[in-house]
Design a protein around this nucleic acid. Structure first.
Lengths: 189, 189
DNA sequence: TGAATTTCTTGATTTATGTCAAGAGCAGGC
DNA sequence: GCCTGCTCTTGACATAAATCAAGAAATTCA
């Protein structure tokens, strides 16, 4: 079983048979560091699965880049609003390192439903799961200090800190790079 | 067409026929001010539609109540994680005023799929829409000051400010009641 | 390898926001 | 209608985090 299949099985709880049907729709795509998978304003007509590498989702507001999230192996990358509702994409999605993705285009994505009858249900549950993750994330902003948010990210995603430029992690945590730098110093000793 | 039907049609883009099939599953429920629709730790086996009144979703952390959202007419209230994944509910849902709800229990909810074949697809799109709303909300915490967040809420949800205790709005905006009070003073003059 | 560029850290300072405490305003229950 | 609690505001102060500026460290790339 490929990594992609493993993750799909975990995320969607499909049978082994359906699994290979689904994964057959995905095609490997290589992104070089700094390549964009998607740019704001374009139409997002494909969904990517991160097989390896790091990829950043961000938006530029008043000349400042706000990093919403950094996806690592096992994450899907997409602008959901654009992919599902045919809106202009709001997010830039850019490789932080060379990346291997498995990509499905929208046409093929719509085929999955024909092949696997329960697909809309599985999809719904997956998106609902993502929704609850965002609920938690909002809660961290309502109830935690910058320091607590840093500690939490460091505890659960330590690997990011030696692979991702700290300025991006700072942005994703809702603080300035200087503040993150000081919290790290304080925390490490 | 009832309010409920109007909102369902808006949210889910269903035919008029399907609409009445769906709405028939909902039963009216009255909540008195301060009644709980759901409490943390319980299992959320029903979904409510707010026909009138105000209802607050909150969680208690370290003895402090954090208000996640305040739902007004046209919103659905539910702990999605509990309703779909059979987990213990994370949110308290409590009436801020007397409320009229239309409520569907989980058993009936599962019937909708039998009556309306495209239901999982419609549901998926609705949840995806909610997901993008939360994405935006996270962005406000990453890119805006407390003052900007207040101004935004005041601009787009003015009606909340004379109906909801300000301490709850403050919490929902991620600031203290004192800060909100000062921002209001500053803003009004 | 070494120059150029970017990223990170640090210090000084300012600003935004939180905390604590007191009192004013309002609302609900008797 | 009038207590009794809540809720909101205000002030004084403390703290967290942002900003600005400079230099150190790391990375990129020729």
């Amino acid at each position: 079983m490929t990594e992609l299949e493993k993750y799909i099985q975990n995320s969607f709880a499909v049978s082994k048979e359906d699994l290979s049907k689904i994964s057959a729709f995905f095609k490997p795509v290589l992104l070089k560091k700094n390549d964009h998978f998607l740019k704001t304003g374009r139409y997002c007509d494909r969904l990517g699965f991160v097989q390896s590498g790091l990829i950043r989702e961000y938006v530029t507001i008043d000349g400042k880049e706000i990093t919403k999230w950094i996806s690592t192996q096992g994450y899907f990358v997409v602008d959901l609003s654009s992919f599902l509702f045919h809106r202009a994409a709001r997010w830039n999605i850019q490789a932080l390192t060379d990346c291997e993705l498995y990509v499905i285009d929208q046409k093929d994505y719509q085929q999955i439903g024909n092949v696997i009858p329960s697909w809309p249900e599985l999809e719904k549950l997956f998106i609902a799961k993502c929704f609850t993750v965002l609920e938690d994330r909002i809660l961290t902003h309502l109830s935690m200090t910058a320091e607590q948010r840093y500690q939490q990210l460091f505890t659960y995603n330590k690997e990011l800190f030696n692979q991702v430029p700290l300025q991006y992690l700072a942005s994703m945590l809702g603080m300035t790079p200087e503040t993150l730098s000081r919290l790290r110093k304080k925390s490490i000793g």
